[in-house]
Design a protein around this nucleic acid. Structure first.
Length: 638
RNA sequence: GCCGACGUAGCUCAGCUGGUAGAGCACUUCACUCGUAAUGAAGGGGUCCUCGGUUCGAGUCCGAGCGUCGGCUCCA
């Protein structure tokens, strides 16, 4: 048989030859450095047989940036970790150990709990194994054999994995350590030039909190020490743009244990908050929403009718009273539906779009709180669209278009996910077929790529979620667009149709920033604290050079109204005050001294670039930095 | 909620094997009035997260609680 090499040439091989055989046929050096092969685009173990006519690419230690090459290195590293842990803790039970985005982990059940200090000897043992040398070999046995083997070894998790596997079982051996594994793996441990154990955490077996909690050891590995160093440096850089750190440095907000999970917004943070609110109000008005305000607390009977009491009672703040119990609202929907249901509506009123960015409170699990990205006091840019069945697709389309408009305004890349019916749901499968189909149609019509997230919908309907990652690569849900075919009926929403009969409207729940708190957290990291001009807390800082220039500086600041301008007339050198403005990431600094006049201003942009502009010229330029004034109004793209 | 770590001045952090606290920045005052990322000097500031225990003596050791951080689970 023959295979096709990346340069297009063909290589003759004996029948049943492996990727390693192919590499050997090309050259001994290549065979030695090979870590993995890609056959017709699919990665496979070097030892796996090739098929006639396949396009073949041999990945080597030189492909240090290739995701597949890194994954195999880390997967093999996880096996070395398991071997080391079993040698140091012979009674440990092994679960699973896959490669992940930035490294790998392995889950263990230790007879005695271990602490972070125990990682050091384990890492030393892994390094000893690498120095000593390890080779991987693959073996395929039947499921029965595998079960007997792992039962004899006292490895119940492996037995469970064998039982849930299909077909024969492959094992990988290195030295005297044998692990159940699909592969692929390295030939030997030589390519693992840098390895580091990075953390310890609890993790439930099979991700199920009702199952035993295992101990997960995280690590990472690279083809070179330089790559590991670069990785650690990237992490350090990312930490510098962490919104929790920048939020304190830039005086935007703080958190206090007096109210965990509820930010104190400082004046500068509020400027950003209000800039987003202004944007929300302006766009809502343009897109046909109306603003409403509904109560913050409701009798618990409302939550019982909406279905939230049963499902989310644990996560609600409840106010017990003498004769009735109130729940502080964790979301706006029941309030908006009670408002809609207050009157009998006509189909002529639909679609009716209620918007309200009310403060919501959710008693999130203590361990889930996280800076601004997971809070108990949350402000959603919420809206509920009451519409007919026929209007659903257009309205979903409108929401998607609106979301895209907002994200483009901030140069944010969001990924879209369609979440479908969960196990515990209200309504029939026929109803869900229809609602899921409507969301899918709108996504496709707007031309958005999306991932399917089966089973992750809300209990009342499917949803489209917008996800973004923070500076450390963690994914967060931002916007959400949810179709609800259940709550409106439960809460008595009705309208009279053209047929003069009563109907229940559909409701689209949508929040596009998602939570303003989380959005500001993500924005802070996205811009590393250097916010664009139009949302920057201080937009311009004027620095009078000497005492004699203070009055003129004040005059200049007044002439820059209504921009957010400050005069820094403190007793510091010009250099120090410029440094302060840089540290505060203020977009523009205007130094004003003997050489300046309103005809000739010294403008310094954040970062150091300097220019001379007249006051009128400067104002004209600032105006171009307001997105809604830059040329034409943003237009609907439908 | 679960596993692990951490909690010292406004911020970032030091404080060895127990002997009642320290730096830089910030702040206040004084001098300097300054030209594009840190002028100099002096000074003020801490229930060492909380409660309990061990000890002659606890920031330091032990226990519990609270909070934060890294994960897991959850996220209307």
């Amino acid at each position: 048989m023959h295979v096709v090499l990346p340069n297009g040439s063909e290589l003759e091989l004996p029948e049943g030859a492996s990727g390693l055989d192919a590499a050997r046929a090309i050259g001994p050096k290549l065979a030695e450095q090979a870590v993995l092969v890609r056959a017709d685009g699919q990665v496979q173990d070097l030892r796996a047989p090739l098929r006639d006519g396949q396009r073949l690419q041999v990945l080597t230690v030189r492909d240090a940036d290739d995701p597949d090459a890194l994954a195999v290195l880390r997967h093999s590293s996880a096996h070395l970790l398991a071997e080391a842990v079993r040698r140091l803790h012979p009674d440990v039970q092994l679960a699973i150990g896959p490669p992940i985005a930035d490294g790998f982990y392995y889950d263990f059940l230790f007879p005695e709990p271990i602490a972070e200090a125990d990682l050091e000897p384990i890492e030393a043992e892994v390094k000893r194994e690498i120095a000593e040398g390890r080779e991987w070999s693959r073996e395929v046995i039947s499921r029965d054999e595998a079960r007997v083997r792992f039962e004899a070894e006292g490895q119940p998790f492996k037995v469970e994995l064998v039982d849930s596997a299909e077909g024969d079982i492959s094992l990988y051996r290195q030295d005297d350590f044998i692990d159940l594994c699909r592969g692929p793996h390295l030939q030997n441990a030589k390519p693992i030039r840098a390895i580091k154990l990075t953390g310890l955490a609890g993790a439930y077996w099979r991700g199920d909190s009702s199952k035993p909690q295992l101990t997960r050891i995280y690590g990472t590995a690279f083809y070179s020490q330089a790559d590991l160093d670069a990785h650690l440096e990237r992490l350090e850089e990312a930490r510098k743009r962490d919104h929790r750190r920048l939020g304190v440095q830039l005086d935007l907000f703080h958190l206090d244990e007096i109210s965990p999970g509820s930010p104190f917004w400082h004046p500068k943070g509020m400027v950003i908050f209000n800039a987003l609110e202004d944007l929300r109000r302006r766009e809502n008005a343009r897109r046909g929403y109306v603003e409403v305000k509904t109560p913050l607390i409701f009798d618990k009977t409302l939550w019982e009718r909406s279905g939230h009491w049963e499902k989310f009672r644990e996560h609600m703040f409840v106010i017990p009273g003498e004769d009735r119990t109130y729940g502080i609202k964790p979301m706006n929907c029941p309030g908006h539906m009670a408002l809609f249901a207050h009157q009998l509506r006509s189909y002529r009123e639909l679609p009716l779009r209620y918007a309200e960015a009310a403060p919501l409170h959710r008693n999130e699990l203590a361990g889930a709180l996280h800076g601004l990205t997971r809070v108990r006091h949350v402000t959603q840019d919420d809206a509920h669209i009451f519409c007919t069945r026929e209007q659903i697709e257009d309205e979903i389309f409108g929401c998607l278009d609106y979301a895209k408009f907002l994200y483009d305004l901030f140069d944010l890349e969001a990924s879209f996910e369609l979440s479908t019916r969960p196990e515990s749901k209200l309504g029939t499968d026929e109803e869900w077929d229809f609602t899921e189909g409507a969301l899918q149609a709108a996504l496709e019509r707007r031309g958005l790529e999306y991932a399917l997230n089966p089973g992750d919908g809300a209990f009342y309907g499917p949803k489209i979620d917008l996800h973004m990652t923070d500076s450390l690569g963690r994914s967060w849900q931002m916007g959400t667009i949810q179709l609800d075919s259940q709550q409106p009926a439960r809460l008595g929403c009705r309208y009279v149709g053209a047929d003069n009969a009563e109907h229940v409207p559909y409701v689209i729940h949508r929040a596009l920033f998602g939570s303003l708190e989380r959005f500001i957290g993500i924005l802070t990291e996205h811009y590393a604290g250097a916010f664009p001009f139009w949302i920057a807390p201080v937009q311009v800082r004027v620095l009078p050079v000497g005492e004699d220039h203070r009055e003129a500086a004040q005059e200049l600041a007044a002439r820059l109204a209504p921009y957010r301008v400050e005069v820094d007339a403190s007793d510091e050198t010009v250099g120090k005050r410029i440094r302060n403005a840089e540290v505060e990431k203020i977009p523009f600094v205007v130094v004003y001294g003997d050489k300046e006049s309103h005809e000739s201003l010294a403008i310094r942009e954040h970062g150091g670039e300097q220019r001379t502009l007249s006051l009128a010229g400067f104002r004209a330029e600032l105006a171009t930095l307001l997105p809604w004034q830059a040329g034409a109004e943003p237009s609907l793209t439908s």
